[in-house]
Write a protein that binds this DNA or RNA. Structure first.
Lengths: 227, 227
DNA sequence: CGTAAACTTGAAATATTTCAACAAGCGTGG
DNA sequence: CCACGCTTGTTGAAATATTTCAAGTTTACG
């Protein structure tokens, strides 16, 4: 319930209202690495990240999993589409120990109907995601691999980076070359080449379980054109 | 007002309710070729296509316009994002003589708050678009140009194709190679090569102002893998 | 009809993937 | 605690798809 009050969608509701909503939502804790749901399974519930990080990956026709996004507290997932879709398109798993709220579809719809303010906020969120997704589509093919990798890193930095002042932005996430390749729609080898170059140039640094952005403005330039 | 009743979002409302909504919406007619709004301009209104076709195009940093989508009656546009965004991301123009309904942002929000059912339908629509956009992003770079062109054609056929029975599906839209190149994120030349091949194979046929899909299943196979 | 725009086709240039081999980091079990 | 082995990352070189550039051809429209 304390968790509930922190979810952006429910901001500004009275404690009484929050309590009524709380009673209709279930809370679940997921140890690191647990699968929350698999792509293709029936999408009966809608989830909100309350705490932790959730990894969303897309499963291709051939069965390979590629990272689609990493969600942080307050983000909605699970069947956006739940708003009408019957099956999950992504596989969701907890990247670190994570806590989620969940609500089944019909109840969620009731809730939205009762609280127009919440519905509007959800709508805003979904619309914003749509806008971002469309922008993504825009840049995808025209851009070079370097641009796409830079864009992916910047997006992650924005979401889950620890700014360490003069020493750059630290991403404490196990982010394999394959994961990045997924986000940037490329191959692990190509990503590796780009990252190696940037490491030589002092733009980034990385280990197995972390990535640091040392020269943010340079990376931003890379994202735009071959800065 | 008759138009209003045909917009999917307002389905199932009583005539009295429709009338109340109607009073808050303005109707505008756009001759073919007119610009409805330009990318970057302030997004104060939200539009619904009542009649005709609206062309949405994305304007790149360098000023080149690429086709993003073609909308038909019932589709919402104009600031999806209007739900929070301040500027249009696309340029919209009437492809044929077109009629739109428009409503300003605050009024639309009021309307949604008053009619939870409408809000849910809008949410469903936006969520579905999001899902499709994400799917698009998925296939974009991994796929070959042929796959992307096939996908674009199929999507258009689904939306605005005239099924002519045994003689295929006709797309009566002026669809230049550049337009298709935009949708498929490629170049006019590459699109031309692919289409030429398909014409030789009897999969499609095309003139300046129309395109026909003769072998739908073949095109569907092309969209998946190099069928 | 003539002209301009759009389309087609070819060939060279380029970016990226693929294949392959090697190096390095990390956990595990001795 | 160290060494082994496995996974992951790196780098090179060849293969490939696509873009780019350029020239010719068709089409529509004044």
């Amino acid at each position: 319930m304390a968790v509930l009050a922190r979810v952006p969608y429910f901001q500004g509701l009275s404690p009484a209202e929050l309590d009524r909503i709380d009673r209709r939502m279930a809370t679940t804790s997921w140890p690191a690495g647990t699968h929350i749901f698999h792509a293709g399974s029936a999408a009966g519930h809608l989830y909100v990240v309350a705490e932790g990080r959730v990894k969303l990956s897309q499963v291709s026709a051939t069965g390979t999993e590629t990272l689609a996004d990493i969600l942080v507290a307050g983000e909605l997932f699970g069947g956006m589409g739940t708003l009408g879709q019957s099956a999950h398109r992504h596989t969701a798993s907890a990247l670190v120990p994570t806590c989620t709220l969940q609500i089944d579809q019909p109840t969620f719809r009731e809730l939205l109907a009762e609280h127009p303010g919440v519905a509007l906020r959800v709508l805003d969120d979904v619309a914003e995601r749509l806008a971002r997704a469309q922008d993504d589509v825009g840049g995808q093919v025209t851009d070079t691999v370097a641009q796409r990798v830079a864009t992916a890193l910047l997006r992650l930095a924005d979401k889950l980076g620890n700014d360490r002042g003069g020493r750059g932005i630290l991403l404490e996430v196990p982010l394999s070359r394959s994961d990045l390749a997924g986000l940037a729609r490329s191959t692990p080898e190509s990503v590796s080449r780009v990252m190696s170059q940037w490491r030589r140039d002092g733009v980034i640094d990385s280990g197995r379980r972390w990535t640091a952005i040392l020269d943010l403005s340079r990376l931003e330039r890379e994202a735009l054109g071959a800065g």
